[in-house]
Amino acid sequence: MRCERAGSGALQLAPTRVHEAEGFGRHAFALFQSVCHDGPVVWVGPAHAPERLLLAGLPQGVGERLHIVRAGGVDLLWAVEEALRAAPVGLVVAELETALSLTAGRRLQLAAEAGGTTGLVLIRQGAGSNAAQTRWHCAPRPGAGADSTLHQWSLIKNKRGTLGDWTLHWDGTSAAFHLVAETGERRGPAPPPL
């Protein structure tokens, strides 16, 4: 299965909105979304973060579209807003260290609408902003087979639509992924009658 670029796949982010991703696997989710979006990808990160993207490990076709901006504090948010307002940009990924205030989050939404760009904010656990369109919890999962790349991506907030939970194999090289059959929430045993 591939993420459909024009269609409305379940894992497709709503265009011209800003979304949030948290959890240990948020960077993988951001890279997956980078493959699914055409055009330049702007990755805004804090100036002194020790983590860096490794070019050899990025999915096919993302490395040459990637622009990395390193800024700190208010400059970081300003850079995200400017990038969201720029029309040719396909996806803006922002790594935030502090929680986004409602004003700042709303401002980013307006910028995304003005520029027609999709934004994805990578946040710390529980540091979400109310202005986000959707929020994803992303975690890598141990797989059964060798060389496994199992991910669990759960939609834990959605302003327009229902929540969901997807477990899939995505090996991080292309837009192709393999969805593990949905098991659904198992119902707990009914409480004993009083």
Partner: peptide
């Protein structure tokens, strides 16, 4: 507008405030 022009404009705007060396690209 060509996409490259728009991207150049963005890099210019960001670079004049943050410094041009902070907008990076990875090359093998």
């Amino acid at each position: 507008a060509a996409p490259q022009d728009g991207m150049d404009d963005l890099i210019t705007r960001l670079g004049n405030r943050l410094g041009f060396e902070t907008i990076q690209r990875l090359a093998p």
